[in-house]
Every structure is written in structure tokens, then in C-alpha cells.
Write a protein that binds this DNA or RNA. Structure first.
Lengths: 165, 165
DNA sequence: GCAAACTGCTTCAAGCTTCATCTATTAAGG
DNA sequence: CCTTAATAGATGAAGCTTGAAGCAGTTTGC
């Protein structure tokens, strides 16, 4: 009835490996689901409440965190989108007077993007509501669980960073 | 030096609330970062290895899990994208002979989308490599951590689901 | 100095995505 | 029946995103 010890162990190890592979795939799928669910809510509310879009909000959020301004490639890296994409969004926001391009004295190719005063005001209003939406969506989790999730995501982020470079 | 007891407590409670709000925002940002990092890797490899895109892969993955086929609106719900989007991608895949539209006898408006034999073969090949990429990206985490992450994401998913409906 | 490599940004085409709107079909109420 | 409402998909405009190619300015190595 029972298999030879050697084969048993080999099969068991394979089984464990497969189970773990499966876990990785499930994490990836669930991560994607969670992100898309939150994204859908935030996107829809940004549109209905403020007539704006998520990428524009994200770009302004980065600028708000860096009052000294950011170069195009820094924005591209922080937002994890291509440079061409950043150009398009900054063009729009600049046309609407929410951000401005300032010449970078040290490098004539580059410039610094900064929120204008109007942009700063506009963003502050959106950010206040935005925080409320996110807090609401995560309200079911305890502080302890949030900390644990934060920790695990940090780990995932770090490993994925190494694995993709 | 010390404040009246009442004020102290009020401030403390506010402080805790703010800290927790901040945690929620950080979770959301980190979730987004992790997702985008993995997405970028998978997207780029799907392109270079198989000349295809992530949305097409995702759609085929859903069909592979439902051998009996899926209706357009079911695909839309599962993939969490709009119906118009599904139409466009199915049109492409159908033109390439990877999926097929089958008439639904019970409802002349609808039809069932299914992988063709060629689609099934093509997907199997991609899925094998895809799993390897994801496993590699998550390799730094222990089985225990993966289980915990899976559990917390499930919770997040559930609460976000309720909060967005 | 100067050529070559690199960097910062833009442009463009192609594909993805949403939202709003449309047609055809089905379901429900009277 | 017949009207009304709801549902399944398709379509088109507008915006997002990528990847590749290109231009101008900077750095590097000889």
C-alpha cells in the first residue's frame, strides 16, 4: 500500500512546491482584484465629484509631496509610467493652470514641474475627500491587521523590486 | 507642563484616528505600487516572449477556467472592465482564431465565448511561463507570509466590496 | 577638443479603457 | 396583447498608456 520512502519524499516535496506556486499566483490575482476595486471607486468619485481623473490626481499628489518641484523623469519613475505619458498629463495640467514648468538652471534639457497656487488649492480639496474614501474602503480592518498588511506589502515590494531589475 | 485630563484624552484619540487614516492611505499607495511593479514585469515579458498583451492574457485565462464558455457580461464582471472593452478584445482574439462566439440558444441577444483548440494550446504555453514569472517575483516571501498576505487581501477584498456597493 | 554614448524630454502610432449612447431582445405588469 | 422597463452587446468619442523613434543638450573617454 505504501510507497518506497524515497519516492514518497520526492512526491511530497513536489506537492509542497506546487502548493506554494499556486499560492503565489493567487496572491497576484487577489492583489490585482483589490487594486482594481479600489481604483474603480476612486476613479468614479474623482470624476463625479471633481471632473478629473486618477492619473491627474496621482501626478498632483506627487507634486504636493515635493514642494520644490519634480523633473519629468522623476515623475515618471515615481508614478511608474512612461515619460511620454507624463508629458501628456503635464501638458494638460499646465494648460489648465494647475502646474507650471520652471527652467532648470543647471540643465537646459530639463525643467522642474511644480503645483501653482491654484493647483495646490485644488489638490488640497480633492485630497481631503480622497482620504475619506480610502479610509472608508479599508474601515473593516483593525489597526493591527493594517500594520501587518503594510509590513507584508513592503516585503513584497522589496522582493519584486529585486526580481524585476 | 501637562494638559488637563479631558483635553489630553481628546487629543490622544484624534492622534490615533489620524495615524490610522494615514495607515489606510499608505496601504492603498503600497498596494498600487506592488501591483504596478508586477504588472510592468508581466506585461513586458508577455510582449517580448509571446507578442501579446496583459488584457488579452487575462481574458483567455478566464476562459480557460470556464471550459463551458462565458457570456460577454460575465467576462466584463470577472475582469472588472467595461463591456465595450470586452467587445474590443474578444473581436481581436476571434479574428486571430483564439476564441469563438457560440450562439446561446436560450437568449438570442447573448452568446458564449470559448477558447478554440488553438487558443487553448496557445494559452497553456503562456500560462506555464507566466506562473514562473509570478512565482519568481514572490520568491522572497515564506509560505507562512504568503498565507498571511492571502488572508489579509481576502479581508480587504471583502470589505472593499461592501464599501463600494 | 571632439566623437560617441548617454540623458531629458517630446512626438507619434497603436492599443487599452471608460463613459455615454444605441439597437435588439427579453421580461413584467396591466 | 401591448406598453414599459430591463438586459446583452456593439459603437464611437475622448482620454490614458505604451513602446519606439527622434531631437537637443550633457557627459565621458580618448
Amino acid at each position: 500500500m505504501s510507497m518506497p520512502r524515497r519516492a514518497e519524499r520526492r512526491i511530497d516535496r513536489e506537492f509542497i512546491a506546487r502548493a506554494d506556486d499556486h499560492r503565489a499566483l493567487r496572491i497576484w490575482l487577489r492583489l490585482l482584484t483589490c487594486t482594481q476595486m479600489i481604483e474603480t471607486v476612486v476613479r468614479s468619485r474623482l470624476r463625479s465629484r471633481f471632473g478629473t481623473t486618477l492619473p491627474r490626481f496621482d501626478l498632483m499628489a506627487q507634486l504636493e509631496r515635493h514642494a520644490e518641484g519634480l523633473k519629468m523623469n522623476e515623475l515618471s519613475r515615481l508614478l511608474m509610467v512612461t515619460g511620454g505619458n507624463v508629458t501628456a498629463i503635464v501638458d494638460q495640467l499646465e494648460k489648465e493652470g494647475l502646474v507650471e514648468r520652471l527652467d532648470e538652471p543647471a540643465d537646459r534639457r530639463a525643467f522642474r514641474i511644480r503645483l501653482t497656487r491654484a493647483g495646490d488649492r485644488t489638490f488640497a480639496e480633492m485630497a481631503r475627500e480622497h482620504e475619506g474614501w480610502v479610509v472608508g474602503l479599508l474601515a473593516g480592518m483593525s489597526a493591527r491587521e493594517k500594520d501587518e498588511l503594510l509590513r507584508l506589502l513592503a516585503k513584497l515590494k522589496q522582493h519584486a523590486m529585486e526580481g524585476s531589475a
